[in-house]
Design a protein around this nucleic acid. Structure first.
Lengths: 188, 188
DNA sequence: GAGCGCATGTAAGCGGTTACATGATTTG
DNA sequence: CAAATCATGTAACCGCTTACATGCGCTC
């Protein structure tokens, strides 16, 4: 149940509405955790009724009113508690790898287009992350020096960058392997 | 619902019982997909009643009898269908990254031990994968040349290796960053 | 007038986790 | 004699996904 904690962290970094949170989960927080708005609204409601969050109705002009959530005392305590608990190192869960092994029992060449598509998506994510890094942390517009929170955000972003870079390289490896198989093996 | 397909692939590679599948999901298939035996038994039963799998009761001596599952015609067709469907490129879901960003609102130094623990686990997984690669694909005992199925298994394993290597390097980066913050920033 | 961005929700279903349960055989 | 391995299951819960629903204002 780390969605709760991801929301707490995001709201500590910056209070906001469910809608805004959902957008953050498509960007920065989304580097390592995804969530849809339906999920977020439900969790926000539950956390608010549990006293972990405060709500403030914010009337707006030209836009629907919104509810701005912020972290209450008990919410901060709950986060602190979780931060001191050990968690399990995660394991991968990669559908594409299942497909690749499955290709042995079907037509490997048919997989090429699919792998190319994934490669492109990951390449775009990589470019997106790199642009964000330049904008927020390493470019001329970035604050110098970075405070502790920014340093931590940066190292997490570097993790996302490393992941996408690794994935792109691996998918190239997969494509090369499929190509070799398609040409009937390496007996030049 | 890729567990179904992971099971189909695993049973095509080698028929076996639910128990054996559970053990494979701790090893080779587990490089990119995890599942517990409770889950596996339920899915096996469902797939069998849907006609995707065949069962054969295998009496054993000194051990409980087992049910050996193998892929039936419709199961192979279902896999083939899935292989030709596009799937969504996956996103990360990394609790530890949430913790790292959350550390900004708590004590960053308290996270060091946790990160070190994760680093060790991923280091061990990396060593385990490398040993498997040597045993099955690149060592003197490995078959030469590899057939298509083995080439595909190998490229998936290389993905697992690349992932663990990347993760270990990133966790070192995280530890270095936490160290810098603990010493009060990079002012010499 | 269509489509997009802002903003908030409900409902159904299922995949996955956790806990519990059984029972034989082999190993320390 | 306890613990681990082999072997198969049930039950409860919950987090997450998917689909559906509403309504305003701005832009093309």
């Amino acid at each position: 149940m780390a969605l709760d904690h991801a929301i707490l962290v995001s709201l500590l970094e910056q209070p906001g509405s469910g809608y805004e949170l959902a957008r953050r989960f498509e960007r920065s927080i989304g580097y390592f955790w995804t969530a849809t708005h339906q999920q977020i609204y439900r969790v926000l409601k539950r956390m608010e009724s549990d006293g972990l969050l405060d709500v403030r109705e914010v009337p707006q002009e030209g836009r629907p009113d919104k509810k701005e959530y912020s972290v209450a005392g008990p919410g901060r305590a709950a986060l602190s508690l979780w931060l001191h608990e050990p968690i399990e190192p995660e394991s991968l869960r990669h559908d594409l790898a299942v497909k690749i092994r499955g290709a042995a029992f079907d037509d490997p060449a048919a997989l090429v287009r699919e792998v190319e598509r994934h490669r492109q998506v990951h390449g775009e994510r990589l470019a997106h992350y790199l642009a964000g890094e330049l904008r927020d942390f390493t470019g001329p517009e970035a604050p110098v020096p970075l405070d502790a929170g920014q340093e931590l955000q940066h190292v997490v972003l570097r993790g996302g960058i490393a992941y996408e870079r690794m994935t792109v390289a691996w998918l190239d490896d997969v494509l090369a392997t499929l190509g070799r198989l398609g040409r009937g093996g390496p007996r030049t």
